[in-house]
């Protein structure tokens, strides 16, 4: 193990132990570790943004007056100045304009992206399962495929119905026929199955991280024995 690796291991183990001290109710060392994380991350982020974004995207075009992009760069420059004004008490209102610009552009991207990237493909995929070519093998119906397609359709509709029901609950309108309650229950079953899988997935990922951290500590201890 090289000195730099050993140094990294020592730092890593120390910080890991500080984080795990939270288990015993400690707040000081846990707080120190998390504040170190915030400080280092913020500084690294700031450096990357300055060197990888602002310099090539904003400063460089402004430095060259003959560049065609010079005028185009004035707009983000003005918006950026307005944003910086937010740091001062009197300039907080000025930040509304660049934020509105960001909000508008991202909202438009979301509209297009969600429509083209999620809603349309997912709905089409669901409908595509009912194509005759998939449901029939020659003259024979593929009952398994048919059942699967029906189950997926019913499941998705019932899950969407749960969304709708939640909206109704918020609006205070909860009078529904019994069969709709049944549909909502089916939707809850499918949501529960998905949440269960997500729960296990999250635990699995966290477990891998925990085992890695413990392995590092054990490896470090084993170096001295």
């Amino acid at each position: 193990m090289s000195p730099s690796e050993l140094f990294a291991l020592i730092i890593g183990v120390a910080l890991t132990v500080m984080i795990f001290s939270y288990i015993l109710g400690d707040r000081l060392f846990f707080g120190i570790a998390t504040h170190i994380l915030i400080g280092v991350s913020a500084a690294f982020l700031a450096l990357v943004v300055i060197q990888k974004v602002l310099l090539p995207y904003l400063i460089s075009p402004l430095a060259d007056h003959t560049n065609a992009g010079f005028l185009l760069t004035l707009v983000p420059l003005a918006l950026s100045i307005l944003l910086v004004l937010m740091l001062f008490r009197r300039g907080t209102q000025a930040g509304a304009i660049p934020l509105a610009f960001l909000g508008g552009a991202l909202a438009a991207l979301a509209i297009v992206g969600v429509t083209r990237g999620t809603l349309a493909p997912q709905i089409l995929s669901m409908i595509g399962r009912f194509e005759p070519g998939q449901l029939m093998h020659g003259a024979e119906p593929q009952w398994g495929v048919i059942l699967e397609a029906l189950m997926i359709l019913l499941g998705v509709i019932s899950v969407l119905f749960v969304f709708h029901h939640r909206g109704q609950l918020k609006a205070g309108n909860v009078d529904r026929p019994v069969f709709l309650e049944g549909v909502g229950s089916i939707g809850q079953i499918f949501i529960g199955i998905t949440f269960g899988a997500l729960f296990v997935g999250l635990f699995s990922s966290a477990l891998v991280a925990l085992i890695s951290s413990l392995s590092d500590i054990i490896r470090f201890i084993s170096l001295w024995f």
Partner: peptide
Amino acid sequence: TTQMEAPVLLPYFDSGQ
């Protein structure tokens, strides 16, 4: 991806994306 994100990606795999 991680295990926890797998269920959310299933529909995109199913749709061929």
